[in-house]
Nucleic acid binder design. Structure first.
Lengths: 197, 197
DNA sequence: CCCGTTAACGCAAAGATTTCGCGTGAGGCG
DNA sequence: CGCCTCACGCGAAATCTTTGCGTTAACGGG
């Protein structure tokens, strides 16, 4: 059994001209992001580089914000299942460490900002990213359950590990350190404590 | 001795024309946000409503994104110290509950998005909001310490409670429920567990 | 109280962007 | 092969953004 070649068919006519335009525009955005300071990226510039007219971009994405969010969400889409490191804790450390590395660079921080910035984009890019994360964690957790390990719910991992990482990237002056992340993973794996006053 | 009338002096000439312009523009933004769908809010419209010229807005804020972020950060600025409910847990529940209520509405969600969206705004609005939250939590924690209670570090509360709330507002399809928040507060107050695989 | 200094604002023109109507062509389907 | 639909290109109009220059308000010294 194969995984679907493309998980998000996106348009009603995948593989046609639409798809080529989308690919060209996305690539143009990534190219400009690599060589231009933010603020010098405009719809007309993207369109010119992609070989399409600005009106096409406006019609498909609405505005620059939503286009950037779309591209950013695509960047955060996992391109493979999480690596199998042999056990739940190791799997989590590998996945979460990769996530931290990806989003804590200046570029990664910008990606996360772009994703959040879009207000009413089609399919809400932020929701897509949350779904990606939960899907990857779901795979890790299922694999561990198959090994007979005791596993926490995915929601607990998101809440305990992913949320603090994301918060630190978006709001704090410096992102979390790798050591903090290890501690968070251990917290997520620790048995729940019911504490009363 | 008096407290400073304005905690954030902002410009070099507080109290003068600058301050009036800033107030007028902020109020114009809030007014438009209340009666117009997002996307119909533009710099010229804000300026007209505030009784200033667009160029003034562009010069002071750079662009609409940064203006909206500035207004949003201002909305999140606490206008009073957190209420004293008699104990650490009660204080935290009151403060955190208020925060959840504030940011989980559609309006509150938009405020948080606006804060994050600004890239290189003056003084980084997102950082200001994080500072507001830590300051309020700091007051609560200090008060509890004064009572002789055992208190967790502010960073732990941010990590355990504020981060998941914020993440859920920005990324998840539905914000957390009040019950979840109570559970998070209890987790933050529970003794730390050192778990080894 | 008056005057000099400085920073912010208003105005208006130039430049860039976004929107919109209309025509065309590619891709899908019988 | 021919029709149908949807997305795209084009170009004009509207709107937004930038910029230079003159003016004004606030502050400080005399």
């Amino acid at each position: 059994m194969h995984y679907a070649r493309d998980v998000s068919p996106e348009g009603p006519r995948p593989g046609g001209r639409s798809a080529r335009v989308q690919a060209a525009v996305h690539q143009a955005v990534r190219g400009l992001q690599a060589e231009r300071p933010r603020g010098e990226i405009t719809v007309p510039r993207v369109a010119a580089r992609a070989g399409v007219t600005p009106s096409t971009v406006y019609r498909r994405w609405g505005d620059l914000t939503e286009l950037l969010a779309d591209v950013a969400a695509e960047r955060l889409r996992p391109d493979r299942p999480p690596v199998d490191a042999g056990g739940l804790r190791a799997d989590l450390l590998a996945y979460v460490g990769g996530y931290l590395e990806e989003v804590s660079s200046p570029t990664g921080r910008a990606v996360l900002r772009d994703v959040v910035a879009a207000s009413s984009a089609p399919e809400l890019p932020a929701g897509r990213c949350d779904a990606y994360v939960r899907a990857q964690l779901g795979i890790i957790v299922e694999r561990a359950r198959g090994r007979g390990e005791r596993v926490p719910p995915v929601a607990r991992i998101v809440e305990t590990v992913m949320a603090p990482i994301t918060y630190s990237v978006l709001f704090a002056s410096a992102p979390l350190a790798a050591a903090d992340v290890r501690r968070l993973v251990d917290t997520a794996l620790a048995p729940t404590v019911t504490a009363a006053g």
